[in-house]
Amino acid sequence: MADFLQLLISGLATGAIYALAAIGFTLLWQTSQTINFAQGEFVMLPAFFALVAMTWLGLPFAVAVVIAIVCSMLVLGLMFKVVVVQPLIKQGVLPLVISTIALSVLLKEGVKDVYSAEAQPFPTLFPDVTLSVAGVAVSLAQVGVLVVAFGTIVALQWFLGATRIGRQMQATAQNPTVARILGVPVERMILYTFLINAVLAAMASILISPIYLAKFSNGESLGLAAFVAAIVGGFNQVRGAIVGGLLIGVVDNLAAAYVSTSYRQAVPLILLVAIILFRPQGLLGRREERAV
């Protein structure tokens, strides 16, 4: 039982990180029909911004984290929107998908060629202390990850629900045409969405890199987890992405412990196929009437 609880907590911790990436993925889809196949690389890259700031420029970790977030907003937010998505949006979904696949290759190979092909240790934000609560060993790092990730999610939910800009963003996501008629500056809202996605990716990167080390190829599994989480939760729902992310984190962790380590990756995927078969709108999605 203690084992189970430990697995549950560490699963929730990684799950919360997946949720950050999945929320960004969902937001991009909603506001600009961008299925971002480079989302995993978006989570891989910011850690390297921080590493560059620390090792090449000799800056302290805290400053490096800020630099990583700012660089993400510029590169993965602004540049991604202006250089990659904007010219392609009128070409339809497939060319954009192809382009983000190419972008994932670009980011991955870029990090490998420019920085290193080796996994890099990454400093943690939290002290590596393990507490024992009622017989359950709880690592402070995991609690820290949970707190920061949930704090981010709560802040985002508050921003989307309670602020004027947030509500305008939601309106844009639900129906850009109507939003435009109502006077919402749709283009700016879409840009904000890209910036928020970049910040979420940077947060996820800084939280996950101490656990998995920073490596150019990390994006593959991270992207897959975000992707699966978004679909399992309900493709066009932020709440769905949160639930999906947590679920995938926990399932992945339990599968590694109780099923088999070599097939741990398979369990979330089987969950994905099962969801597509039996509840295609996702766990929290609404069913749509379908013709044919």
Partner: peptide, 11 residues
Amino acid sequence: YAVLVMTMMAF
């Protein structure tokens, strides 16, 4: 190759 693909998709 990646840059070429992205350029090609745009144009």
